[in-house]
Design a protein around this nucleic acid. Sequence first.
DNA 1: TCCTTCACGTTGCAGTCGCAATGTAACGGA
DNA 2: TCCGTTACATTGCGACTGCAACGTGAAGGA
Lengths: 203, 203
Amino acid sequence: MPKQVDHHERRTLLADALLRVAARDGLMDVSLRHVATEAGVTAGMVQHYFRTKDEMMIFALDVVAARVQARLADDPDPRRLVRSLLVQLLPLDADRELEGRVAVAYHAYAATRPDVAARLEQDTRGMRAAVADRIRAVGHAGPLEPDIAATGLLALVEGLAVHVLGGHLDGDTALATLDGHLDVAFGTPASTPPPAAPSGSRA
Amino acid sequence: MPKQVDHHERRTLLADALLRVAARDGLMDVSLRHVATEAGVTAGMVQHYFRTKDEMMIFALDVVAARVQARLADDPDPRRLVRSLLVQLLPLDADRELEGRVAVAYHAYAATRPDVAARLEQDTRGMRAAVADRIRAVGHAGPLEPDIAATGLLALVEGLAVHVLGGHLDGDTALATLDGHLDVAFGTPASTPPPAAPSGSRA
DNA sequence: TCCTTCACGTTGCAGTCGCAATGTAACGGA
DNA sequence: TCCGTTACATTGCGACTGCAACGTGAAGGA
């Protein structure tokens, strides 16, 4: 066999270009040619690694899902674990903002593509179960059922992310809101103050 | 002057067609020709009433915003007012589902169009202020600051809506989650049970 | 050395897009 | 009656889209 190229690496490189385009210009502007230009390659090469545009879109979604998954260091303390899981879903730095924009775009995209929707659903369900388990793990119950609390926390960060991305909310307020609801969900262990207090300003 | 046609009525008719296309096929499939076909008119007529596509998109957004606004009956009871406001943001029936899909699509769209983003932001800020005021209006405080609670409730319904639309969640669970968080936000007036209990099943 | 295979690059095609330009029928005031 | 305005419909254009087809250069086993 000739040449020998790491296919997965090339596809990931193209997926990254796609994510940048999607975050900057929106999913409507994602085309074979735009992705190719962003990646600094020809459109033909993109076609070589993805037979169809949809295949490329789904691969890119898998890339971000894998990265989010990989960033999860597991923590013995349930609340810290849940918090770190949820915090990384908020667009608080440049990388998360890019991922957040991609996520919003893909949620809209999923409305028409059942397979994309399925992948998104699977991720959400997994996280919800994980959060609910951790809430159950701590004894002192809050006012909310663990399942309800977990559902609420996931939905909360989803909404906070949307509002921060839309400029309706600043990151500090989003973090404070998340921490407040973590207190509620975990039954406010006021003895153990939130792991890292938000820096300062809030508006 | 000839003919005499109610411009606003015609534009609304076209906007409705746009919303149907957007909800069914996604915003990427919204084109002058598709909207025209959906409305049963020619593309030329659409162009007659909207000089550009963007003008049409923004008008359609205004139409839904006005409808959401119009559906708000004001209630002397602050909590009931807030609940009715938030409930109608959830995709619990066919109409709200359509609006929800449109909302998700527009959130993605807003990422690239500053004027669309501005309109969305204005709506959100208005609702947040309204909710915060109503929370402050009731004396008995919950564990959360009113501003934090209001921010949380808005984000919560946004996220719940996304999850319900994506099929990650059923409507009853979403409603139960909302009611649970209303209890928290308003300081659990357990004496006054939720105005209308969700029907029954939850899965 | 030949020859297959892979990794691209190039070209072309049918379809769609937003939009401008132009045509036409009908109504209403002068 | 004429004439301007309004309400559409039609046509056309340049740009773009996804995708198939084909071309090319190099690597490597036989």
